[in-house]
Design a protein around this nucleic acid. Structure first.
Lengths: 219, 219
DNA sequence: ATTTAAATTTAGATTTGTCTAAATTTATTT
DNA sequence: AAATAAATTTAGACAAATCTAAATTTAAAT
C-alpha cells in the first residue's frame, strides 16, 4: 500500500513516541508533530481503517504490526539519507535532519536499495541511531543516557535525543560533538546538573535537561 | 518565494513547452501534464498573481523572467539528480526519470550546491541534456534531430525527445543507447522511415516517429 | 459518589488542487 | 458576415488535510 506524506509523518511520529512507553495519546502526538488534537483524531481514524493502528476511541493507540513495518521503512530511508548527506555531501550532522525529513518520503524501493549499497550498508546514522535493514532489523543501540553514566567512566557521545534546532544550537555553542570522548566528573544533587569533561578540554557543567538529551556508549 | 510541488510541475512543463514555440496553450499544457483544461486555467490564474506567468485570458501564456528563473532551478535539480542516479547509484539512464521527478521538489539550496560539487559540476545529464548552473546558464545543446542528420554523416546519439515509458521500451527493444555511434544509410520518402546503422551492428530501419524522438551530435 | 478538570472527539469551516458540465470567447467555414 | 466548431474559462462540487469551537468521555478531587 501507498501512503501520503502526511500519513507517513504520523506513522513515524507514533513509532518514535511508542518507543518510550507502550501506547501513545492524542495530545502527546499533537504536540510532537506540532498540530491540533482534532487533526490527530482525524488521521487516527484513517490509519485505523488502513490497518496501521490499533486504536480505540479515548484510550490511546499504537502501531499494528503492519504499521510498525511501514514505520521502520520510513526510519530506514531517513537514516540512510542522513548518512549520505553527512558522509558524502559533507553536511554537518546537525544540519541534515530537515532535509532527510523531505527525502524520506521519496517513493522508490530500488532507490533505497541502491543507495544502501552505494553507502556500503551502514549500520548507524550520523546521530548514532541504528539503521534498519530491508527487513526492519537493526543493531541494538547499546547506548546509555548520559544521566545514567557512572562517574569517571569513559564513554563516547553517540546520539542526541532530539533534532530540535534549540538543542542543536546549544550543543554547537558548547562544542559538544557526536564521537567525542566524555567523562562525568561530578553530579550535583541540588539541580541534577553534572560536570563533564569532553576530550582534553577544560571541564564544564551542563543542565539535567541537556544531559538527558545526550546518549553515550561506554568504552 | 516558495512553490508547491504542483506549482513547480506546472512551471517546469510550461518551460519545456515554450522551448518549442513561443507561447503555450491551455490544451497543450493539459495534455502534457495529464490533467484537464479547467485545472490548468485555475493554476494559470494563481501563477499569474505570483508573477510567474505572462498570461492573458484566451490568448496563451508564457513564463515571466522570474518564472523562467524558477523553471531553470527545477530543471537544474532534476538533471543533477538524474546524473547522480545513473553515475553513482548505477541506475540505467532510462530508469531515472520518475525518481528525479520526485527528487526535484526537495527544498534546499545547500543540498543542490553540495550535490553539484560532489558530482564535480557535470554539464550534461545522462540523457544528454545540459544542466543549468546556479545562475541558470547552461551549455548549448548543439544536437540535431536524427531526422535532420545528413546521409552518411557520423554522429553520436545524445538525447531522447521524451521520457515516456513507451518510447523507452521501444529503444531498449531496438538496442538504441545514448552514446552509441549512428549513421543514416537511407531515407525513404514514402513513409519517411530511415535506415540506420548503430556502432558496428547490422543496419535496420526505424519509423519517422521514432527518428523524431532521437537527437544526435554530429562528430 | 458527585463534581470538576482534562483529554479526546465531533461538527462544521477552510485551503489547495482537482474534476465535470455549462457558458463564453475565439477561430474556421462556407 | 453569419454559423459552426474548437478552445478556453467559469461555476459549482469533491477529496485531503487542516483548523476552531462545541460536545462528549474519562480521570481526578473533594
Amino acid at each position: 500500500m501507498n501512503f501520503s506524506t502526511s500519513e507517513e509523518n504520523y506513522i513515524k511520529a507514533i513509532y518514535h513516541l511508542q518507543q518510550s512507553g507502550g501506547t501513545v495519546t492524542t495530545n502527546e502526538l499533537a504536540a510532537h508533530i506540532n498540530t491540533r488534537a482534532a487533526s490527530v483524531t482525524d488521521m487516527l481514524k484513517k490509519l485505523k481503517v488502513k490497518d496501521i493502528l490499533l486504536y480505540e476511541k479515548y484510550h490511546g493507540f499504537q502501531l499494528s504490526p503492519k504499521g510498525k513495518k511501514v514505520a521502520l521503512g520510513i526510519v530506514r530511508k531517513h537514516r540512510l539519507w542522513e548518512f549520505f548527506l553527512v558522509n558524502n555531501l559533507n553536511f554537518g550532522w546537525d544540519e541534515v535532519h530537515e532535509i532527510a525529513e523531505e527525502l524520506e518520503h521519496i517513493n522508490s524501493i530500488t532507490l533505497i536499495e541502491k543507495l544502501d549499497a552505494y553507502l556500503d550498508y551502514p549500520k548507524f546514522d550520523p546521530h548514532g541511531d541504528p539503521i534498519p535493514d530491508v527487513n526492519g532489523k537493526m543493531e541494538p543501540t547499546r547506548q546509555v543516557n548520559l544521566i545514567d553514566l557512572a562517574l569517571h567512566k569513559s564513554a563516547r557521545i553517540s546520539a542526541v535525543g532530539s533534532q530540535s534546532s534549540e538543542l542543536l544550537e546549544l550543543l554547537s555553542h558548547k562544542g559538544i560533538l557526536i564521537g567525542s570522548n566524555i567523562e562525568v566528573l561530578q553530579k550535583f544533587a541540588f539541580d541534577h546538573s553534572i560536570e563533564i569533561k569532553i576530550d582534553e578540554n577544560p571541564s564544564f557543567s551542563i543542565s539535567q535537561q541537556l544531559a538527558q538529551s545526550l546518549f553515550v556508549k561506554p568504552i
